[in-house]
Amino acid sequence: MAIISTAGLARTFTTKRGTVEAVRGIDLTVEPGEILGFLGPNGAGKTTTLRMLTTLLPPTGGAATVAGHDLARDPAGVRRRIGYVAQSGGVDPNVSVREELVTQARLYRLGKTEAAARAEELARDLDLTGLLDRKCAALSGGQRRRLDIAMALTHRPEVLFLDEPTTGLDPAGRADLWDLVRRLRDAYGTTVFLTTHYLDEADALADRLVIVDRGVVVAEGTPGALKLRHGGSPDATLQDTFLAITGRTPAAPADPAPVAV
C-alpha cells in the first residue's frame, strides 16, 4: 500500500496583489521505501506541496494520506511519523548542537535520559560527534545540513521530507548527502521524498521522479522511462528530457541563492 497518496492537493495564496495558485491539483503516490525525486523549476510549487504534506500549511483543496494518517483529520498522527527538513534548515545559530538535538528529542516526547542518549547516537550516525558542544553557527554548510537531517531523524520517522537538501553544498557535501539518503533507505527502509531542481541529483538518487511545473504534475516515472518516453532514447540526458516535458530547463545558469519561502 502507498505510504503517501494525494488527490487534487491544491493551495492558493491570497496576497495584496491578488491570488497565487501555487499548487493547482497534485495527484501522486509514493511506495514505502522509495526515494522519490520531486523535480521542478523554481516557483513550480515544490515547497508549498511539501509544507502541505508535513501539516505546516493547510491545503485549500484536495486531500492526502501520509504514513496512514489523513492530513486534515489527523495532523498529529502525521507529525509523529514524518521528519521534515526545510530548505533553509531550522536550527538557531546561537544554540549548541547538543541542545538542539536534545530539545528536538524532548519535543518528540522522549524522556530526559533517552533524549540525551538519542542525541549522542544521532551525532555518531551523522558524523557530528566532535561538534556536539559547538554553537550551530560554528558548523560548515555540510555539517549544518547533517544536523538538520539528524533533527528530522530523531524519532526514526517512516517518511523523511527533504526540501532541496543539497542546494548550497559543495560537490563533496552533495556526494556525502546522497550517500546518507541511500544509507537511510537501505538500513531502515525510510521513504524519502525530496525536492530538487538539480537534474543530476534526481537522476543519481531517485528511484522515481515526479516532475511538477506551474503547480501540476507534468510527468512521472523512473528516470530511465522518462528519458525513453520524452527524450526519445534511454541514453537521452535528463536535461533534454526535462526540456521536452516543460519547454525549459529546471534551473537558470545563474541560480540565485536559495530563498526561504
Binding site: T55, A76, G83, Y84, G89, G90, V91, P93, L107
Partner: peptide, 16 residues
C-alpha cells in the same frame, strides 16, 4: 528572527 531561521516551522513539524 527565529521564524526567519526556520526554527518555528521545524518545531511545528513535530507533535509539540
Amino acid at each position: 528572527v527565529e521564524k526567519n531561521l526556520g526554527v518555528i516551522e521545524r518545531m511545528r513539524a513535530t507533535p509539540v
